[in-house]
Simulated assay, not measured.
Amino acid sequence: MKEVWPDIPYTAWNETCSALHLYCQVIGKYRLARTPWVNHSWHATFYVDARGLTTSLIPDGPACGMEVQLDLLGHEVVVISSDGRIGRLPLLAGSVASFNRRFKTLLADMGANPECSCVPNEIPDGVPFTKDDVLRPYDAEAVARFFHALVQIDRVFKQFRTGFLGKASPVHLFWGSFDLAVTRFSGRKAPLHPGGIPALPDKITCEAYSHQVSSAGFWPGGGGVDFPAFYSYAYPAPDGFSQAGVRPDAACFDANLGEFILPYDAVRTSPDPDGMLMEFLESSYRAAADLGGWDRHTLECATGRPLHPRPVP
């Protein structure tokens, strides 16, 4: 029987995970180059769909649009044009440079404009895609397990998102840091962010954190943790945030990251994975909101249910 919350040990597929991250960056750069800017870089992200990840429709040309799907079950990139054409590119072991060439060729063959940056973001000492000739593996089984984990996480994150009336982000995957995230906003402006994120212009970071946030997400591993994990942080972090009583017991504050961390395996092996993850999301948000002086009475509501409109006071 297939695990609903699959085991996705990072060390077993970290090289494939790194390759998939970079392939997402190649595709993400195309969306970034063609899509008008939206607050907090929300225009550049991917979304979980029924077979993997999708860019949604990208405007490319006056009468044309392109959607790029990463089919993580069929292990191919699918480019769909609004004029009815479909192009396919298999996901295989190989180099980032080769993937970049094949993807750009496919875009051009379909009438899209493939011109975009080839410099990776948020990767220290990243190698331009065109020069990254390192041969990388592709573990299809591990990729499929990762996708099935994303489906479960996306579902719980979306449920959590329904309990907030204020400004909230979509549940989306940032290809720079390779994390699935959902963010709530208090409505107040934040102090200017100091920037300093590797390979990311400070002006982008400052715009992303222009307002007070409580943000939660999921990493498959890497970036300071060598295991799949959920995280939650506040910007600006209010006094006492690191000592807050965030639940469940498996959660802890990582001083190096400045974030609360909950190992994915603690959730996966719990008798109630949904409940444990929701407890982490809710308690870490409440810590940020209470210590940060958010107007919780105005901003919050009951979590949504199918076919039940929210009552209007």
Score class of each variant (00 low, 15 high):
residue 109 D to T: 13
residue 93 A to R: 11
residue 83 D to V: 09
residue 88 R to A: 13
residue 115 E to K: 11
residue 109 D to F: 15
residue 145 R to T: 02
residue 80 I to T: 09
residue 126 G to S: 12
residue 141 E to T: 10
residue 140 A to L: 01
residue 86 I to K: 04
residue 152 Q to H: 10
residue 85 R to M: 12
residue 106 L to F: 03
residue 136 R to T: 04
residue 153 I to Y: 01
residue 77 V to T: 09
residue 138 Y to A: 01
residue 86 I to H: 05
residue 87 G to Q: 08
residue 144 A to C: 15
residue 151 V to A: 00
residue 140 A to M: 04
residue 119 V to W: 06
residue 91 L to V: 14
residue 100 N to D: 15
residue 92 L to M: 13
residue 112 A to T: 05
residue 83 D to C: 02
residue 137 P to M: 06
residue 149 A to W: 00
residue 70 L to S: 03
residue 119 V to I: 14
residue 80 I to Q: 06
residue 138 Y to G: 03
residue 122 E to N: 04
residue 88 R to W: 09
residue 127 V to Q: 06
residue 104 K to T: 11
residue 120 P to K: 04
residue 135 L to V: 11
residue 125 D to F: 15
residue 78 V to C: 08
residue 105 T to C: 08
residue 140 A to C: 07
residue 97 A to M: 14
residue 88 R to T: 11
residue 131 K to F: 10
residue 72 L to D: 01
residue 124 P to Q: 07
residue 81 S to T: 13
residue 86 I to C: 05
residue 152 Q to G: 14
residue 148 H to R: 06
residue 145 R to V: 01
residue 82 S to N: 00
residue 123 I to N: 01
residue 84 G to Q: 10
residue 149 A to E: 03
residue 86 I to P: 02
residue 86 I to Y: 10
residue 84 G to K: 03
residue 85 R to Q: 11
residue 109 D to N: 14
residue 69 Q to F: 08
residue 109 D to R: 10
residue 95 S to F: 07
residue 118 C to L: 14
residue 114 P to A: 11
